[in-house]
Design a binder for these strands. Structure first.
Length: 247
DNA sequence: AAAGTCGCCAACCGCTTTAAT
DNA sequence: CATTAAAGCGGTTGGCGACTT
């Protein structure tokens, strides 16, 4: 296809590399919309694109897929990223599942540019290992959560009703224990798009407004930069959530 | 105005995991 | 059960625009 300057113009093993052209985007979009996602190697072969399956998948997932938000990460999304990163570390794809419309790549880039540097500067405190027990607890929660995710896997095309039930399936155990329906509804009315897409954040907020903030307080302490970055020197997660993006 | 620096983001690379045979 | 191919994931790189000196 269009020969680009620089690295994009030199195919390796026959595959083109480098930035995608609008024509390529169009070809890929058309192919995926008529054949569906998956079988990326055949996409590469059959769509007329001179791109590897890997490259096609990446382009689709990160750029062409419908429903992608693109653009600025909201304060709320930022908070979710911070929380989930504290919980799971660099599990970008996992974190991305809770940010509808955002890609792992986007989140990863965002984290690196906004927080990584600060984290380094504050290394002594930020990198203090969590209490072993807490760490173990978190690991267990993650494992449970992953299992639930697996069990809850289903095609995207399967209706909203199922998506809503998945909302519960996807929640880490600790969140599922919180069943403040009223609060959830309240938040749902504030953030309809999020609840629509499985939305952990709602329950985060439920949880954080509740009494048991021990763990989360600990997580928030993980990195002072969070406070500086988000609430401009605020001193607690409560402040952050309430002041930052709940009300 | 030009040069240098920084931040952001798209895309690639290599490794791991999963599915198919 | 073993092997292989495909898909997924996280880390890294390079280009480009904005900002600073």
């Amino acid at each position: 296809m269009v020969g680009l300057m620089g690295w994009g113009s030199v195919p390796v093993q026959g595959w083109r590399k480098g930035p995608w052209t609008p024509e390529e985007d169009k070809l890929l979009s058309e192919y995926v919309s008529s054949h569906g996602e998956g079988r990326w190697s055949s996409v590469a072969r059959c769509s007329g694109l001179n791109r590897s399956g890997k490259s096609c998948r990446l382009r689709w997932v990160n750029y062409l897929r419908p429903g992608l938000k693109r653009g600025h990460i909201t304060t709320m999304e930022e908070g979710i990223i911070i929380e989930l990163h504290a919980l799971w570390g660099n599990k970008w794809s996992t974190i991305a599942r809770y940010l509808p419309g955002r890609t792992d790549n986007e989140i990863k880039n965002y984290w690196r540019t906004h927080f990584k540097k600060n984290q380094k500067q504050q290394k002594p405190k930020a990198q203090q290992p969590l209490e072993p027990k807490l760490q173990q607890q978190q690991q267990q929660q993650q494992e449970d959560h992953e299992i639930k995710l697996e069990n809850g896997k289903m095609g995207e095309a399967q209706g909203k009703q199922e998506a809503i039930s998945m909302e519960d399936q996807c929640l880490p155990v600790m969140y599922q224990e919180i069943d403040d329906h009223q609060a959830r509804q309240q938040v749902a009315s504030m953030y309809p798009t999020i609840l629509e897409d499985l939305c952990l954040p709602v329950t985060y907020q439920d949880h954080l407004q509740g009494e048991d903030q021990g763990l989360w307080g600990g997580l928030w302490n993980l990195d002072d930069t969070i406070d500086h970055t988000i609430s401009g020197g605020g001193n607690s997660s409560q402040n952050y959530y309430n002041g930052g993006y709940i009300f």
